[in-house]
């Protein structure tokens, strides 16, 4: 049962991921990306990561992708009908080759080094709940947590400054 759910979600994620990359218009890419993220959120439930699931839906599929769509519509881009450039083919070839090699290396690394892990232990009580994560964030990871707030502040200021009309 679990395996079937995994297979379904993984297939959705993979297919919509492919579609993200090959869409000609950014809006479709964004919509497929939302689907991918939703599928990933489902996988998080399978992995008993409840808090992460919530955040994935709220922040990623919600906030971030809304921001993307917002910008796409703000720019009101035409369909990507720019002519094929002579170096596009070469770039796609090189980029694709590099990506294949990269993923090959990743898989090798994951399978031969991480793949020999012992079978999963049963999840401990409270695994993946908001309470546990909150406890961790405010004890063990307090300092990175605070730094994160600084990063967000800087991002807010930076985004405002950059997007102002008078810039450049």
């Amino acid at each position: 049962m679990e395996l079937a759910i995994f297979a379904g979600l993984a297939a959705v994620a993979a297919v919509s991921g492919v579609l993200v990359v090959i869409q000609r218009h950014a809006v479709y890419s964004a919509l497929f990306l939302i689907i991918t993220m939703g599928a990933l959120a489902g996988l998080y439930i399978l992995l008993e990561a409840h808090f992460v699931w919530a955040v994935q839906v709220l922040v990623y599929a919600g906030a971030i992708m809304v921001l993307f769509l917002f910008v796409i519509m703000l720019l009101n881009l035409p369909r990507e009908d720019v002519p094929w450039r002579p170096d596009d083919f070469r770039r796609i070839l090189i980029g694709g080759a590099l990506a294949v090699v990269l993923v090959g290396e990743l898989v090798l690394a994951l399978l031969f080094q991480a793949g020999e892990q012992a079978p999963a232990l049963p999840a401990s009580p409270g695994f993946g709940t908001t309470e546990t994560i909150g406890r961790l964030l405010f004890t063990e990871f307090l300092f990175p947590f605070e730094v994160t707030s600084v990063i967000l502040l800087v991002a807010i200021v930076g985004a405002m400054v950059l997007a102002k009309k008078q810039l450049l």
Partner: peptide, 21 residues
Amino acid sequence: VMNYVLGFLAGVVVILGYLAF
């Protein structure tokens, strides 16, 4: 930017290759 991305990618491949092998 594209060419820099490719260069960057090549660098990642090399480093990751080293780590993997």
